[in-house]
Design a protein around this nucleic acid. Structure first.
Lengths: 134, 134
DNA sequence: TTAAAATGTTAGATTAATATAACATTTTCA
DNA sequence: TGAAAATGTTATATTAATCTAACATTTTAA
């Protein structure tokens, strides 16, 4: 159905994916802790995501990703990873600042720019490893 | 007073700055056209910006930037310019996509990362001009 | 095994950003 | 110069994202 997600909903999906990867399960409490919002806010977001067919959430149960939801979560996580790598390894930005920036920019970078950035990291990366910087 | 602006308010400020640079004046109509919103939305935003002391707007008159407002507008414009330059000159992203991406990311990139990016462009830029690519 | 603690849900309020529609002012030009 | 067009403003509504507070369910442990 409706494809375009808000930044907030993308963050919920990404967080659910991360929690499942880390803990095998995702609970409302874990999500609210991770995103620093209240359980009630999480519930509302989960209802929207469930309506869109991106998660499955039975009352008082764990939260699961549908295949489509997992696809989106993985996609956003990938963008974040690429951005963090660029910021830390190539620009030499501090890890925590890099992560903070990436967590916001991951929602706005286009697929085209991401692809070019990945290509660029590949090119530059080789040079850097040769130099054995550090 | 209150310093942190929303992305929307930053866009209004930046647009006002751009219009003044281009046309000497900024009118409600120009702002709404540029941002693709209605005049009524612009008016509401202008009231908020005026409350924060970032613009001056007399009824039915032109919109002006206070020194503080101009400072912020210039700062955001600078971030956009740096991002566009990086995307187009170094990543080789199409101009219109670069601009679209930069217009969103300019609100989230930190000062630290921006500084490192500017430094990196300076380093890389020299190499690229030597190579006379194209 | 049940009472307390932890967790989850729902109802109602708030804030920000937008829109439409009605109305006000200013500008243009016949 | 005054009527029409353009532009600006205000009132009211909607949507998204959050909150607090009250209530419901599940889990834990004495």
């Amino acid at each position: 159905m409706n494809k375009k997600l808000t930044e907030s909903l993308e963050n919920y999906l990404e967080t659910i994916g991360m929690l499942i990867r880390k803990n095998k399960i995702a609970r409302v409490k874990d999500i609210s802790k991770e995103l620093d919002v209240k359980n009630s806010s999480v519930n509302i977001a989960l209802n929207v995501l469930a309506d869109k067919g991106l998660i499955i959430h039975e009352k008082y149960g764990y939260v699961e990703l549908t295949p489509e939801g997992k696809q989106i979560a993985d996609d956003i996580q990938h963008k974040e990873d690429v951005l963090v790598q660029f910021f830390t390894e190539i620009l030499d930005v501090d890890k925590d600042i890099a992560l903070k920036d990436a967590c916001r920019m991951e929602h706005t970078i286009s697929d085209e720019t991401l692809a070019k950035l990945i290509f660029f990291i590949g090119k530059i990366g080789k040079k850097n490893t040769k130099k054995t910087n550090k």
